[in-house]
Design a protein around this nucleic acid. Structure first.
Lengths: 264, 264
DNA sequence: AAATGAATTTGACCTGGATCAACGGAGTGT
DNA sequence: ACACTCCGTTGATCCAGGTCAAATTCATTT
């Protein structure tokens, strides 16, 4: 459970483990200069978690902040009877635990093997005091998450199942950083159940909707956890709420308006 | 449209209009010392908007930040066909426009006469530079909004209509600051339509659900825009997702599980 | 390769909340 | 007082997506 920091080849001008961190470029840590990185490394503790391990529990005292350096975690909230809402998936470089409250407002679970840096709150506060640029980056990060959260509220409150799944696929496609795969290739490290809990749907509806997209040649699914986008334009348009619920197959006979409040 | 700052009696040690601002105590501005308030007042422009006026339009270049000093505004996003999601209601002291992007990610409309302070982005950035405490307050604010947004995602993704309305009422009750009214008195400055767009429901469902609460003596409605909470414990419990969908009247005959994904 | 168990898909059916429609009440202007 | 409009309520009906149930596929282990 408590593994040592992996040994890495250190360069001549090494400033500690943070300078060779895979996640640094995509993370708030990039706000700190090379020569100051040692300061950050001092207060960071590297931890690893296996698939399914919950390392933040809603309601627990919020002692630490986390920065993900490998793998993916799901952020979620639970109702007492087990209903679950996934509020986001956090990947490499993602910062977790931003909250003023003294208890966590959400839980976090590794959905694949995860490595992360842990900072104790008081120690991070010290670092923040010394590096105002880091605080600015945190504010930026928080603002971006707020925008994403509003987008997700629109999805959960007003989009149809088809629109939700399309939105999810194109967002995943966009989030996938310029890496080895072409942009049309989307990796899905999460299960159908986790997708359902993210989109406010059931497993069955997610599955059926993906099957329908496949039938209509909008996507292909080489395996259970990857999707290839075949008709990006249609998915984009559907995600945005156009596309009046008719597809290649299936003749629409009814009034054909998606469920909504249309006014003014 | 462009009204002058209202004249106020100035104290002997007045530091400009901000020092007598009604909203200051509840706002990020409280992070600034009395003697520095003049600096803030310099860059602030007071504006007023009537009911129904939209003063932030999604997609427009994000030139300004706003701080509400009187009234209530709704923050919302639109789909192309008119479907609307209200992501929040902002009252006195609320700070608007936090976003890194150069365009607004949401629209804002006055739902009652509103007075606000407008800060241009570059000018506010200067002030932020001079008062790091203000930046910290902004980060705190953003974190709080993030927590609220996650709570709302849980509501939109996983709660039943009855649970949504109950959550809305008790949240309104909690948000209402210790003021003239007893806590059980909830003011609703927004229309049923705006409540519906906030809760991801239709006008009809909101109306029916409130009627049902009233019938069951959970609430009373002296007028259309105020509610008196009669059974706070039941509403709290319902909002949290307990209360298995049965009420005073109405015998439940079926399996009685609220719609959800229940696992692990 | 067979066995076990979890994840996913598919089908049949049901229901909570949406849609459609009609009506009632509170303002507001003339 | 009347006409008009906006808002909210209530009733009747419909359907997208949930629920229940039964395969089928996938990943692992033996």
């Amino acid at each position: 459970m408590h593994r040592p920091l992996p040994i890495r080849p250190a360069s001549a001008h090494d400033h500690g483990p943070c300078s060779s961190c895979d996640a640094r470029a995509q993370s708030v840590c990039s706000a700190i200069e090379d020569r100051d990185l040692a300061r950050l490394a001092e207060v960071a503790v590297v931890r690893e978690f296996g698939k399914g391990e919950t390392f933040i529990e809603e309601g627990d005292p919020a002692r630490d902040f986390f920065n993900i350096t490998r793998g993916t975690v799901k952020i979620f909230k639970l109702l007492h009877d087990g209903r679950q809402q996934v509020t986001g998936f956090a990947g490499i470089g993602h910062f977790l635990g931003l909250a003023v409250s003294d208890t966590y407002a959400f839980s976090a679970e590794a959905i694949e093997p995860v490595q992360l840096c842990r900072f104790s709150r008081p120690k991070l506060r010290e670092v923040l005091h010394d590096f105002p640029a880091l605080e600015q980056r945190l504010l930026e990060t928080a603002c971006n998450e707020l925008v994403a959260a509003q987008e997700q509220m629109l999805l959960l409150g007003r989009k149809t199942a088809r629109e939700r799944v399309a939105t999810f696929l194109v967002a995943r496609c966009r989030n996938t950083l310029p890496c080895t795969q072409p942009a049309e290739h989307v990796a899905l490290p999460m299960t159908r159940s986790e997708i359902a809990d993210y989109l406010g749907l059931t497993i069955e509806t997610v599955s059926r909707t993906l099957s329908r997209f496949k039938l209509d040649r909008r996507i292909a699914t080489p395996s259970n956890n990857e999707v290839i986008i075949l008709d990006r334009a249609w998915l984009d348009s559907t995600a945005a709420g156009h596309t009046p619920a008719s597809a290649i197959s299936g003749v629409s006979r009814h009034s054909d308006r998606p469920a909504a409040t249309i006014r003014s």
